[in-house]
Design a protein around this nucleic acid. Structure first.
Length: 598
DNA sequence: TCACACACCCACACACCAA
DNA sequence: ATTGGTGTGTGGGTGTGTG
């Protein structure tokens, strides 16, 4: 029977390369028409030529024929269960025969490196259990499905490989006759084991080196003589298709749900956060505006940082730790030059280009500057930027950087620290003084414009209660892995013929925005659907930290705080920011709702 | 020729430490 | 407490050998 004679119902047994899995059915299975039909109906194919790459299927209890002693053999139940469940089961769980270990390698390992009985590592972590292994069954007790009765739950049982099937597909050939000399292909069970071990270490990321150093220490891979480099490269070959990781708390203890299963998380964070051009621009802008760096005779700048400057900066811009920000300044911006970088950044923006971060804007130049700094050589100017700092003063506020939007930078204004540096704790707002040429005034009357800040909590009791009761406004765990499609859904949902509040509410609810949050957005954005959309985007991109976009027309908590002050000057600034018409409409709406004290 | 396993390299993010 | 020096590990590029 060939695949072409049977209508293919789904692609259960098709690899990512669109090639069907080839199954070799050991007699008497080769005459089992039901089984054959299952294979071909679901996209696979049945072969009778063992010299081809194929997955060998047999039944438990049948003698392994001599010519298959060196093959990995899987139970026919792998096929049956996959079809029954509608997803591809982890074939590694159905391994009924594996090739015996190669004597020369095993001997070498035992005599040269290991005592006859490896000491049991009896720690709190169950990963390193190392029980005796049946040498004829190449299934390790460490193997995920076989982690029994241990404190953290069995993983493989539920997680399996299912959606992550590239592993089976990519190593199917070698699952049959793995080679021990030359190229040693990964088997499905190695892939499955590796993925599970990665998922159990979400704090290590999965692109680095350390995690593989740990995993390759496990006896499962020690026995298979896998180096950390090979494990790492395997994951790179699999295009990092880890799919998900298991949630862990800050002490690296894996979270377990009410069923005793590890809790999946699709937020796979990287271990290091590269500095962006916006990061550099933001830091330079604050240093330039608030700390007034003074150029010295060697062409570098002298900057006096107030106490805890980087702590404050890191708190306000948490994409990097305070120490990282300090290092960034020390290792790159101080070398590049604050004024140089600002000029470069502004020039690029004005020319419609995307500026590069300071480490890569001009690698040769910064390398030269770095050595110049130590050797005290001649001054080295950044090419093609204006001499005068006036260029910065004239343009710096025209450059919009989303990262800086809505941040109140007043906290970085040092309070006369040059005179009394020792009592330099928090500068109370009323005591802020003009130290540099661009300090912000503080008294309400001297505030010249409204600078919005992010809205991070529900200010109105009604919405706060809903939040308490119904939880997060959007299920981020569900949405973030498909961020782009979700945002498209939201955009499409808001393409309504009649943009009434109730229509928007229904449409948003349909795509996964909780009703109370939709109500909140409509209320704060004055039913402007583009602002509602922008706010949802902001919410997702900030991982749920910010409830509202920052834009005229979107009324933040800060704006409402100002309203409640009933100060005419501040209201005028709000009018200037939001527009007089919008101001009047919103204030009327707020009054009507009685949610704020007006 | 291609995919894969394995290895090596390097810029850089980040942490730590001594002064 | 701040600062400069230094060590460690990430993340990604790439080279080589094999089948």
């Amino acid at each position: 029977m060939s695949a072409s004679e049977v209508p293919i119902r789904d692609r259960l047994f098709v690899g990512q390369d669109d090639q069907p899995y080839d199954f070799y059915l050991c007699p008497p299975l080769d005459t089992n028409n039901d089984l054959i039909q299952m294979v071909v109906e679901h996209g696979g194919s049945v072969v009778d030529d063992l010299s081809l790459e194929c997955i060998v299927i047999s039944s438990e209890g049948y003698d392994v024929p001599e010519n298959l002693k060196d093959a990995h053999i899987y139970s026919y139940k792998a096929i049956e269960d996959s079809v029954a469940n509608g997803i591809q089961m982890d074939f590694a769980h159905y391994l009924i025969h594996a090739p015996p270990p190669e004597p020369d390698f095993q001997q070498q390992e035992i005599t040269a490196a290991e005592p006859q009985v490896e000491p049991k590592q009896n720690g709190s972590n169950n990963d390193n259990n190392d029980d005796e292994v049946n040498p004829f069954l190449d299934i390790d007790p460490e193997y995920p499905t076989e982690v029994p009765n241990s404190d953290p739950p069995p993983i493989g049982a539920e997680s399996g490989l299912s959606a992550d099937l590239p592993t089976v597909q990519q190593s199917k050939a070698t699952a049959v006759f793995p080679k021990h000399h030359g190229v040693k292909y990964f088997t499905p069970e190695e892939d499955a084991f590796l993925l599970e071990e990665i998922r159990k270490r979400p704090w290590l990321g999965f692109k680095g080196h350390q995690i593989y150093k740990e995993i390759c220490e496990l006896s499962f891979f020690q026995k298979r003589e896998r180096t950390s480099a090979s494990l790492r490269e395997r994951i790179r070959t699999l295009k990092y298709h880890v799919g998900y990781v298991y949630s862990a708390d800050k002490d690296h203890k894996l979270l377990v749900d009410e069923d005793g299963k590890y809790v999946r998380s699709f937020l796979i964070k990287a271990c290091v956060q590269p500095f962006t051009a916006a990061d550099d621009f933001g830091l330079c802008k604050v240093v330039y505006g608030k700390l007034s760096p003074k150029p010295n005779s060697t062409g570098f700048e002298t900057v006096y940082f107030p106490t805890n400057f980087f702590d404050k900066y890191g708190a306000m811009f948490p994409q990097h730790s305070p120490e990282s920000w300090r290092q960034r300044f020390k290792n790159y911006l101080a070398i590049f030059g604050v004024a140089n970088y600002l000029k470069y950044f502004i020039m690029e923006k004005q020319q419609g280009n995307d500026p590069l971060p300071s480490n890569s804007a001009n690698r040769d130049w910064i390398k030269a500057r770095r050595s110049l700094r130590k050797t005290d050589g001649p001054r080295l100017y950044f090419p093609n930027i204006p001499d005068e700092d006036q260029f910065i003063d004239d343009n710096i506020d025209t450059i919009l950087v989303p990262e800086l939007e809505g941040k109140n930078l007043d906290v970085f204004t040092p309070m006369a620290w040059t005179e009394n540096k020792e009592d330099g704790n928090e500068a109370p707002p009323s005591k802020r003084q003009r130290v540099s040429n661009s300090t912000e005034p503080t008294a309400p009357e001297s505030i010249t414009r409204f600078v919005d800040t992010p809205t991070t909590y529900f200010r109105e009791a009604t919405f706060a209660k809903f939040y308490e009761k119904e939880g997060e406004p959007i299920d981020l765990d569900e949405v973030i892995p498909r961020k782009d499609s979700f945002l498209t859904d939201v955009a499409n949902a808001l393409k309504l013929e009649e943009l009434t509040a109730s229509n928007m509410l229904k449409a948003l609810n349909k795509v996964g925005v909780k009703k109370y949050y939709a109500m909140f957005l409509i209320y704060r954005c004055g039913s402007k659907e583009w602002l509602v959309q922008k706010s949802i985007k902001r919410y997702v991109e900030t991982n749920g930290q910010e409830l509202l976009c920052i834009s005229p027309g979107a009324w933040s908590n800060k704006a409402i705080d100002w309203l409640e002050l009933k100060n005419k000057h501040l209201n005028d600034l709000l009018k200037a920011y939001h527009g007089e018409e919008d101001f009047n409409i919103q204030v009327a709406a707020f009054k009507k709702s009685h949610s704020i004290n007006l």
